[in-house]
Design a protein around this nucleic acid. Sequence first.
DNA 1: CTGAAAGCGCTTACAG
DNA 2: CTGAAAGCGCTTACAG
Lengths: 339, 339
Amino acid sequence: MAKKSITMQDIADRLNVSKVTVSKALSDREGVGEVLKKQIVEAAESMGYHLNSTARSLRLGRSRNIGVIIPKRFSWESNYYSDLYQKISLHLSRKGYSSTLHILEDEDERSLVIPLEHFEYKVDGLLVLGQISREYIEKIRTTDTPVVFTDFYDEHRDVDSIITDNFYESYNMTNFIISKNHKKIAFVGSVCATSSIMDRYLGYVKSLMEHAIPMRADYLIEDRDAAGRLIEYPLPQDMPTAFVCNCDLVAFNLIQRLVKGGLSVPRDVSVSGFDNDMHSKLCTPPITTVDSNSEEMARVATEVIINRIENDGGVLGRIVVKGHHVIKESVAESQAYFD
Amino acid sequence: MAKKSITMQDIADRLNVSKVTVSKALSDREGVGEVLKKQIVEAAESMGYHLNSTARSLRLGRSRNIGVIIPKRFSWESNYYSDLYQKISLHLSRKGYSSTLHILEDEDERSLVIPLEHFEYKVDGLLVLGQISREYIEKIRTTDTPVVFTDFYDEHRDVDSIITDNFYESYNMTNFIISKNHKKIAFVGSVCATSSIMDRYLGYVKSLMEHAIPMRADYLIEDRDAAGRLIEYPLPQDMPTAFVCNCDLVAFNLIQRLVKGGLSVPRDVSVSGFDNDMHSKLCTPPITTVDSNSEEMARVATEVIINRIENDGGVLGRIVVKGHHVIKESVAESQAYFD
DNA sequence: CTGAAAGCGCTTACAG
DNA sequence: CTGAAAGCGCTTACAG
């Protein structure tokens, strides 16, 4: 914060007008002569004037600042949410908004601590990236701040959620794997952990059912504990020829394990991921995956929250953003012709 | 921002006192009777009062908000800076500060656009994560906002920089490699790209000199172009037995290349990294590296900027944070006994 | 087209 | 110990 800064009054004094006129001129509102307006704008420029947005915020009751909450347990897992946040931050700033990131500590999520000390009067809206507990959602909704959830949804119909088309993309991915002659296909993911995993699983189920491939209990593999942390899981005794993983990180870890176990990916076993994040790129072989189009999600999330704030826009509900497949090298034709 | 919110006046009305007294009670200042103070605090609680920090900011000329700038070109490269930012954000919030992240687009860095539209009156201080151009540094210093640079420094003596002990850690790492009987040791990194790379190189040089190993021009390998982007570089004709890489990402990429070229790491060639970021963990083999102690950097950076703001603390200059070696698997005894 | 007045919610002197 | 007054910098009615 500048020590002794130029105010509208300073500009007004210089030009012998009132600060009201300066205010109007600088915000390009009606009621100032063209000539005078130009003079004011130039004076502001030359005097190094900058709007005091705090004062404006106080007056308007709007901060043009958006709070972004990321549950801590996700923030370390991969760079997916930090990427998403960076994109959102960029979109917001193009619309004249700033953003304040809050990493929600696990403990605070459990005890329903809302970071209102920093948020209540400093943000016009809230964006939550990544699934938080149902109780926390309820808690957040008791504040009268508009809130948009990103990358998850729940049974509430009266909230905005921006999500990837998990169900359909996963259905497609499984179809693709089946088209490569795989029949022994496992799904890796704890379906109750997040709505994304659940929906990705159901896309896989749909594909299997349509191809009359029976579901097997041992081919649904839990990959995280009750707290949502990734765990070491046992591989099925009867080895699948393909694994549909709920995300790239899990696919990455699985591939490392398979390779260490002496199997070749994709020659012996195929593995697919989801997210197209850095894990899918760093992996050897690179992981065939789904790009969830975080650029578009960021754009839509920004648009929706600003619409809620500025136009008192209603709740749009669940908004699905299309993704697209990224065929890399971790899925290949099944060698198990005689299954 | 809440629509119709409780103010100090509301509490004052309820208890038939003045808002001055309420203000004093809630901020725990002198001049309020213990009994009354307790009443006020309880009333505030029960009425769901939250301080309007915008009003306070306007009054005090302080926002308790810190702007954090990350050059975009770094933000994608690895998760190093987003990790650092998250840690800083946590430390700040424990001290009652919020933070606003600004990803500095390459174009804005070139044309010296300072994001003052959002910053000038909304931040009390600025934290820059990652090296920015000298011109941009100059530009930032023309604002009278306290600024602290993290993870780089330049010839200016009158600015605060928090950095890893790149020189010493790299010296140590090279010593370690030499202790494994390596003599043909290359350094991978464009030394003019950042102060970190330069200092890491010089640590390597010191170690070589002390062990009377001659420097070779073909063993200093440029890994990025003038814009700082990573490039494909040719490997030396005369293959080194060890590579000291300026960061884990570069080490990761190099190891992939070597392995693809039919070499085994570390059996045939040893490779070291720097940062202890996810690349060093995801790599096969995991990369022997230096942990730059980003937790401590975050803590110190937070402390320094707040000290500058709150106590009008002077410039401390260059602050070096110790790191530590993390021995993993990518460095082994040299097999080239007869060099 | 221009401006005097009021007020956003708070805190800092200062007076009682 | 308590409170009336002033003011942070802006914008929104309203009046001329």
